[in-house]
Amino acid sequence: MTEFRTHFPPVNARTHEVCGPSALSFALALAGQLGGTVLWLREAWWGDQINPVGFAPYLDPQKLLLALAPSHLDLLASAEEALRSGSVALVVMEITKPVGLTEGRRLQLAAQEGNATGLCLLPEGMGSNAAQTRWHCAPVFDAARPATDSTLQRWEITKNKSGTLKAWTVKWDAQTRRISVVSEAAQR
């Protein structure tokens, strides 16, 4: 457990990446852990809408700002400005195209300047060399567990500029708004 706490939440004032089927859960849990205002950016062409009330088990919906960018470049520019501003704790970017090394480095510098955390939600296999860490998150399916226990997830660091690669089975606790590591013995 102690080792997990040295990795999550990820290092502040840096930009990180997450992919996998549970990437959204990772972003919500991170937002809940960091507290403060969260800016959630996505491209305007997406047909579905994000419902802030659905985030309530993770964070106060009043602390969530949703913004639609006309293009990928506008999304990155908006994220950079928000990170640099120092007005938000977290900027979540739903990325659909690769982030170049220059753009990724600009996001890192903006996060450092504004003392904020950036998080790119991206498709698997895509990522920037500038990211501090990259996580892969997926649900854990176990036929032996009760159907009511659907929150187990495997969070794995697949890239880490300043440490080792590691994986944990975790569970969200809505009452405490915290991630708990599930021990190997408890998984059986």
Rank of each mutant, 00 (worst) to 15 (best):
T6I: 05
H7K: 14
V11G: 05
V11S: 11
V11A: 15
H16L: 14
E17W: 03
C19K: 11
L24Q: 14
L28P: 03
L30G: 02
A31V: 07
A31I: 06
A31C: 05
G32S: 04
G32M: 10
Q33H: 15
L34S: 12
G36R: 11
G36W: 09
T37Y: 08
W40V: 06
W40P: 05
W40I: 12
E43I: 11
W46Y: 13
W46G: 08
D48G: 12
P52L: 08
V53T: 08
F55H: 09
F55A: 15
A56P: 01
Y58S: 07
P61S: 00
P61H: 04
K63T: 10
L68T: 09
A69M: 10
H72D: 11
L73W: 13
D74W: 02
A77I: 02
A82D: 03
L83F: 06
G86V: 03
G86S: 01
V88P: 02
A89V: 01
A89K: 05
V92M: 00
P98N: 05
T102D: 08
E103V: 02
R106I: 00
L107H: 00
Q108I: 04
L109C: 03
A111G: 03
E113T: 08
G114L: 02
N115T: 13
L119W: 05
C120W: 14
L122M: 13
L122P: 00
L122S: 07
G125H: 04
N129D: 09
Q132V: 05
T133G: 06
R134I: 10
W135E: 02
H136G: 04
H136V: 14
A138C: 10
P139Q: 01
F141T: 12
A144C: 11
A144L: 13
R145D: 13
T148M: 14
T148L: 15
L152H: 08
E156A: 06
I157C: 00
T158C: 11
N160F: 04
S162K: 13
G163H: 01
G163Q: 01
G163Y: 02
G163K: 06
L165C: 08
K166E: 14
A167C: 10
T169F: 09
A174P: 15
A174Q: 11
Q175Y: 08
R178C: 11
S183N: 12
E184K: 15
E184V: 14
R188T: 13
